[in-house]
Design a protein around this nucleic acid. Structure first.
Lengths: 155, 155
DNA sequence: GGATATTAGTTGCATACACAACTAAAATGG
DNA sequence: CCATTTTAGTTGTGTATGCAACTAATATCC
């Protein structure tokens, strides 16, 4: 927690911060232009897609989808209404709900991904060499790990 | 706009994406814990602080503060109510408003910055070597430039 | 120079999200 | 085994933000 922050680090932070918002906004705009839902839907569905049996407890999904628990409840409401997922009560623990990805959910994921991928390929990838990409993955991987252990959840 | 996205790039994107949200949330939480306004206020005030005479047209400020024009109008409403800035009509062009940073605005900036800086120093900097920071600044600097020229505004 | 187009900013409306308070279920422990 | 605490998820409420429509002012062009 060094309070002194060298100018180099600060400049890196600023570029990181600004670039993220720009790229994020550009990708969201492309998705909206293609009449597709926003990245938060994608993130949630994709987390489920990755999960064993394509299902996850609400709180795990909230973690993975970068949302608060209440935010996730609302998102899951909408996804469920669209039949993209199903809520399943847990027989072993009455407090727990699982979100289960449906076939329709997978299908939407497959519709979103090409547009998302193209966005990454347009706004991000062209400016990042292969070597830089490896370094970025390493650096930001460390940041993610640190943030997640700090937040208490190993997950 | 290569549609093919190597796994290396993709992995870099994912870490970049997730790390950003984690760090951003952590810093926002620290600011809130210190009863300070959020980064969007800081961003807007800081843009003005950097500007010549500490004032900027609304639309330029929107660009710099990463907001839509309507979003900026609302933010400026709040900042003005807190006397952190003043709106000034432009004598040369009746459509234009300038936002002018006040002394109180500078003061708030100076209160926020230590907390913000500490957040960067806690969540970001420890995981980034000096060499990596230089590279990150370069890479994301390119991304920002590309995004801004694409968005039409050189600025 | 007056009709039309463009530009700057604002406002109406809708949406997405967080925090805090709540409910229900399970764990703890005496 | 009942009372208390903890945990999982939901709901009430407030806020931040964007898009599209609007207003007012300037620029363009015949």
């Amino acid at each position: 927690m060094k309070a002194n922050l060298p100018e180099t680090q600060l400049e890196a932070w600023r570029k990181y911060y600004v670039s993220f918002w720009r790229v994020f906004a550009a990708i969201e705009a492309d998705l909206a232009a293609a009449s597709l839902p926003s990245l938060s839907w994608y993130d949630a569905l994709y987390q489920l897609y990755l999960a064993p049996e394509r299902r996850l407890r609400m709180s795990a999904l909230a973690q993975g989808a970068l949302l608060s628990r209440s935010g996730l409840t609302r998102l899951v409401d909408k996804l469920e209404k669209e039949k993209l997922i199903e809520r399943q009560a847990c027989p072993a623990d009455g407090r727990v709900q699982h979100a289960q990805l449906t076939a329709k959910g997978v299908e939407l994921l497959r519709k979103i991904w090409p547009v998302y991928r193209t966005g990454i390929a347009k706004y991000f990838a062209p400016h990042v060499s292969d070597a830089e990409a490896k370094e970025i993955a390493a650096v930001f991987g460390r940041i993610v790990s640190a943030a997640e252990t700090a937040a208490g959840g190993a997950e």
